[in-house]
Amino acid sequence: MRLRLGTRGSPLALAQAHEVRDRLARAHGFAAEAVAITIIRTSGDSIQDRPLSEAGGKGLFTRELDLALMEGSIDFAVHSAKDLPTFLPDPLMISGFLPREDVRDVWISQKADHPRDLPAGSLVGTASLRRGALVKRLRPDLRVTLLRGNVETRLSKLAAGEVDATLLALAGLKRLGLSDKATRILDTDDFLPAAGQGAIGITARAGDAATAQLLAPILDPATGVALAAERAFLTILDGSCKTPIGAHATVANGMVTLRGIVLRPDGSQWFEAEESGPEAEAAALGERAAQAILSRLPQGFFQEAPVPDTI
C-alpha cells in the first residue's frame, strides 16, 4: 500500500503532515514510509508582498492542492483548518479533522508583556486582519502593519526590530517546538480565535471510499462538530480574508456553544453573538449566531474601511 499525502512546504505545514502520517501509521500498524508526502507550492506561499485579502483570500492556500486531488496525483491533502475556504470544489470534501490543539493566540514582544503595555505608537506586525483589528480594538493608538512569511520568518523579522510585536497561533508554535517564544498567551475574551484555529483538516475526493476508510480512525468527531458551527458562521458572513472574523465553538456533554465576532479592520466597531444547542444542531447554531450579527450590522459594513499597508 502506498498513500500520497499533499501538503504545503512550510515547516508548520510539514509538521502537520508528519502528524497525520504518524497517526495513520499507528492506527493501521504500517510503516510511516507507506505514506508519501508530496510538497505542493501554493499561490499563497508565493505572494509575500501584499495582504492575501488583496490577492484572492483563503483559497490561495488550497487551490493547487485541490487541483492535485482532482487530477489524482495525491490521495488526500492536509491543511490548517483555518485556511480552508467556506466552499470546496464539488469533487472534493473535508474528510474531517484531527483532535484540536490549543485555539489561543499568543503575543510576542521584547518590549511589552501584553498589548495593553506596549508604548503608544508602537508597530505590531501581523498577516491576519482579525488579529490586527483585535489589537486596534484594544489599543487604537497602536499601528498595525503587514507581516507575511512562515512562523520562523516572522519571528526573525521581529528579532531584527522590523516590528515591535507580533501575534501568532499557539497551536502552530507548539507543533514547531517553539512555544517558548510566546511572551503571553492571550485570553479568548479579548482575542477570539479564527474559525478552525488549532485544528488540522484533511480533504479528499468525494466518493473515494478506500481513502475515507483509512482516514476514519484518526479523525476527531468533537472537533468536527465544533468546526461545523464555526464554518457555518463564516459561510453566512461570507467569511474570507477580507473580513476580520473570529469564531470559537466548544463541545461538552452533547452541547455546543459558539462565540462569534465581526470587526471593522481598524477595530473601531465590532459585533458579537453567542449561541448554544445540541451537537446535532452545530451548523444551525453557527448560522443563527451569524444572522444575529447580520441583523445589527450597519449598511455598508463589509465594504467600508479598506485596509492600507499600515493602520
Rank of each mutant, 00 (worst) to 15 (best):
R2M: 14
T7P: 01
T7V: 14
L12K: 01
L14G: 05
A15E: 11
A17S: 03
E19R: 15
V20I: 11
D22M: 05
R23A: 15
R26M: 12
E33Y: 00
V35F: 01
V35K: 00
A36E: 15
G44D: 01
Q48A: 13
Q48C: 05
R50N: 01
S53V: 03
A55K: 04
A55H: 10
G57H: 11
E71M: 04
S73C: 06
D75H: 14
A77H: 04
S80Q: 13
T86F: 10
L88R: 07
D90G: 03
P91F: 00
M93C: 14
S95Y: 00
R104L: 11
D105P: 00
I108K: 04
I108C: 09
S109Y: 01
K111A: 15
L118P: 07
S122N: 04
G125F: 08
T126K: 08
A127R: 14
A127D: 15
R130W: 14
R139K: 04
P140C: 08
P140Q: 07
D141C: 08
N150Y: 05
V151W: 01
A169T: 07
A169N: 13
L170V: 06
A171Y: 11
G172N: 06
L173C: 04
K181Q: 13
A182M: 06
T183A: 12
L186F: 07
D187M: 00
L192M: 12
P193H: 05
G196Q: 03
G207V: 10
A209C: 01
A209T: 11
A212Y: 00
Q213S: 12
L214Q: 08
L215M: 08
P217T: 04
D220L: 11
A226H: 07
A228W: 08
R231Y: 14
A232L: 14
L234T: 02
I236L: 14
G239C: 12
P244E: 13
I245S: 09
I245R: 02
G246Y: 08
H248D: 09
H248E: 12
A249G: 06
M255W: 04
R259L: 05
G260S: 04
V262G: 08
L263Q: 02
L263E: 04
P265I: 00
S268M: 09
F271A: 09
F271N: 09
E272F: 12
E275Q: 13
P278I: 10
E279M: 12
E281W: 03
E281Q: 13
A282F: 11
R288L: 13
A289E: 06
A289I: 09
A290P: 06
A292D: 08
I293V: 15
R296G: 13
L297F: 04
F301E: 09
I311L: 15
